[in-house]
Amino acid sequence: MGRYKNEIALKFLGERLKAYRLKAELEIEDLVVMTGFAYNTISNMENGSETYLSYFIEICFALGIHPKEILDIELDLKPRFPLPASRLEKSRLTNRINAFIEDGYFKVERSASEVTKKLSLDHKLAFESKNVSVILVRFAKSNILKVTKNGNKNLYSIK
């Protein structure tokens, strides 16, 4: 996938920067002196080209304005791509298992099937043990849980 840029927002922000610069009766060369940035860097930003956030902030400072003044624009506040329901559920599952860890549920060794049953009882979630196992293994790899073997079954507990 190629580099992404929100051309509409960048163009609008560039126009706002330019308007503030003109209102302050400054030339691009003045901002060059005040920021140490190249003329093209500032010109490109005003024309809606991609830039670094640090450059944007420093130019705002040179203009004597808080960056939030430039950023205070109407935008359609939604993600570029919707989060699939399966990904959202996985995040919620991870957070719920983390809550079990914090609440001391894993002070006693637990199998993935036990955790799955608790999730089903507490949150009315219908996940397979293999889905829960993947998350438990991640917690083990992060040294949050330890894994012990009981035959072919993994048991998880707090380290």
Score class of each variant (00 low, 15 high):
Thr116Glu: 05
Ser157Ile: 02
Leu83Ser: 12
Leu17Asp: 04
Lys149Phe: 10
Lys5Tyr: 06
Pro84Gly: 09
Lys117Ile: 11
Ser86Cys: 09
Val132Ile: 01
Ser91Gln: 15
Leu93Met: 08
Phe100Lys: 01
Leu155Pro: 03
Ile65Arg: 00
Ile101Phe: 03
Glu128Gly: 09
Phe106Arg: 04
Leu136Ser: 02
Tyr39Lys: 07
Ile42Glu: 00
Ile135Glu: 05
Leu145Trp: 03
Asn131Ile: 09
Asn44Ser: 11
Asn6Trp: 05
Gly36Arg: 05
Ile144Pro: 06
Glu89Met: 10
Thr35Leu: 00
Tyr156Met: 03
Glu89Cys: 06
Lys159Met: 08
Ser91Asn: 15
Ser142Gln: 10
Ser43Asp: 09
Ile70Tyr: 00
Asn6Phe: 07
Arg92Asn: 14
Ala38Asp: 15
Arg87Tyr: 15
Gly64Ala: 07
Asn152Ser: 13
Tyr20Lys: 15
Asp30His: 05
Thr94Cys: 09
Val132Cys: 02
Ile70Phe: 01
Leu121Ile: 11
Val115Asp: 01
Arg138Ala: 11
Ser129Gln: 03
Leu136Met: 02
Pro82Asn: 12
Val33Trp: 06
Lys146Pro: 00
Gly104Val: 01
Ile42Gly: 01
Ser120Asp: 08
Leu121His: 13
Lys141Trp: 05
Met1Ile: 14
Phe12Met: 12
Gly48Ala: 02
Val147Arg: 01
Ser113Trp: 09
Pro79Thr: 13
Ile158Cys: 08
Ser86Leu: 12
Asp30Trp: 00
Ser49Arg: 15
Leu13His: 01
Ser142Ala: 11
Arg96Ser: 06
Tyr156Lys: 01
Ser157Met: 05
Ser43Glu: 08
Glu15His: 05
Thr116Lys: 10
Ser142Ile: 09
Asn95Phe: 13
Val137His: 06
Gly2Pro: 13
Glu114Phe: 07
Val108Gly: 09
Phe56Tyr: 00
Asp103Tyr: 05
Asn150Ala: 08
Lys117Gln: 12
Ile144Gln: 08
Asp30Val: 06
Ile70Gln: 01
Asn44Trp: 07
Lys153Gln: 12
Pro84Arg: 10
Pro79Ser: 10
Leu155Met: 00
Arg16Met: 03
Leu119Gln: 02
Leu13Gln: 00
Phe106Asn: 02
Asp30Met: 04
